[in-house]
Design a protein around this nucleic acid. Sequence first.
DNA 1: TTGTATGCGTTATCAG
DNA 2: CTGATAACGCATACAA
Lengths: 347, 347
Amino acid sequence: MRQSTILDVARAAGVSRQTVSNVLNSPGRVRPATRERVQRAIAELAYRPHASARRLRTQKSSTIGIRLDPMTDGISGSVLDRFLHALTEQADAKRLRVLLFTAKDPDDEILQFRRLTAGADVDAFVLTSTFHGDPRTEWLIDNALPFVTFGRPWGIDDMNDPKHLWVDVDGYSGLREATTHLLGAGHRRIGYIGWPSPSGTGDDRRRGWREAMAEAGWSEADLEPLHVATEEGVAQGADALHRLEAAAGAIDAVVCASDSLALGALIAARGRMPVVGYDNTPIAASLGFSSVEQPLDKVAEGILELLTGAHGGRVSRDGEQVSDPRHRLIAPHLVVRDAPVLSGEHS
Amino acid sequence: MRQSTILDVARAAGVSRQTVSNVLNSPGRVRPATRERVQRAIAELAYRPHASARRLRTQKSSTIGIRLDPMTDGISGSVLDRFLHALTEQADAKRLRVLLFTAKDPDDEILQFRRLTAGADVDAFVLTSTFHGDPRTEWLIDNALPFVTFGRPWGIDDMNDPKHLWVDVDGYSGLREATTHLLGAGHRRIGYIGWPSPSGTGDDRRRGWREAMAEAGWSEADLEPLHVATEEGVAQGADALHRLEAAAGAIDAVVCASDSLALGALIAARGRMPVVGYDNTPIAASLGFSSVEQPLDKVAEGILELLTGAHGGRVSRDGEQVSDPRHRLIAPHLVVRDAPVLSGEHS
DNA sequence: TTGTATGCGTTATCAG
DNA sequence: CTGATAACGCATACAA
């Protein structure tokens, strides 16, 4: 059974194929009566425009490429998973496709950019986990390819004069909320376990904790022994809690930069104190500890908005101005859980 | 800067554009001298065939569609993640692209099948988590669309007369190996925590445990109190271990159908016995318990072999023909870990 | 509002 | 072994 083409529809509806094309692309230009007749024919023949033909004609693929990160080592791997799902779902609503690719390193990724755009497979990219001075973003800017990053450029003035379009989750406010919640629950000595500086994301989250504590009356000096930096990982989180207690003595609660660290701290704490994580991974849900949830559907929405510009639907061509702010900062929210699986039971 | 086309290359090399096409698609038909000249021109102009044009002409998209499962609730969500990565990477080597889509339910997924194939976006599908009497596979078969499933059809005779192409991991042998390993380490009373019947995957894994135990001398009757079925989840795993001990008394070790269950059991066991999981998720690695690893790159490889063989694809290596069987059963392997983070420390 | 002609970049056919 | 010609399905000026 051959796929029906626009010509079949035209014949069936008794119009020219041009009219069919108009019904599809600019319905306003066709008289309602004819339009309806054409649409009926389309439905009867189960006609679908041939994507490749359309792309060849329009010179746009309506496809966005995203690199599948190999770094699945962490507990937080599921974040990319969920983000991908949200992105795909919302892209679909805008008639955009999501194409996957992989790359070994930033240079290889640039090679893929070139390959995918040269072949017109993709006409925009979504980048995750960018860093300061990222060669990928510079290459994309130099080559005038549309892209949005999930993550700030971490440049001089990201808000008012960003180097490129970006969407990010406000880790600062996330940790601030987590800390404030613990303070509100009566905890005083709240520690923080995070990553070593300099780290855009890490420093931002630590600042959220620090400012919430400062508002509760803590001085910079008193806060100093209450935080500790470590690499990502469960064992590292456990170790960090021990170091924290060694340096600061008794602690009432602890907030962490990630669920991995939180899990480690939780194990080390053995129920002595509440632990709050970040990312709200399945692990947090399973073990019943609070965690900061990133609204990934909002992130995906923001990315697509930025990508398609004001006139949703197609990816904006280069040179086309995007009207509104060139970024979206999404506020996360704390998911509070009070039923710790790990510490609650005793044999 | 306009993309260079095949015509530009032809002019630069002083040949007709057809010759360029031949150099690309059937190099054998072009004289080496000319071929080299053309290839130099291609390199100089950084020419890449326009994917859409080629697809329009060949009526093949060289793209495989895969649904992004929404069920990321479990700890094992990262399995799909890793599989996707492996699939994308290997598809790339075969010049295939991977396109994502989402669907709310099987019916919606069928709608997406129709949409994606009608638009010629995709010409084959990869299905995950199939079940007995799956409407999706039936629809694809009825419409003669190429597809391979990750997971057996769970029909009458999957091995010799499968309903469709499939690749699966041999959960039976995985659990068998896990159990044998524990037996070899001197454990006698080894319990099993799995999912309720009927479940193709679940029953298969339980059989692995059962037969390993039978070989060690256990009778069906004696084995009965040593296994328990529960829904997926960490809390469920913990509960299951308690039920197991209540029914069977002292237990030496326990093997589980998933890392989620294993994590629950591990928490409930509090270091009293070794626990072995399935999927080798980051959680297993972080907490230091053994788990059965699914070789997802092998799975991806098998899927692509079956797929390219199915729609007249290329030869795999050195002119070797792809072998006959319409399926691949991949053997997993146990990753042994002896450094439990959870049970090892005491305050 | 509708129809006609043309080309997007590629590959297949079939002639030299 | 090479080169001219004809589609693939669609969308857009332009004419009616």
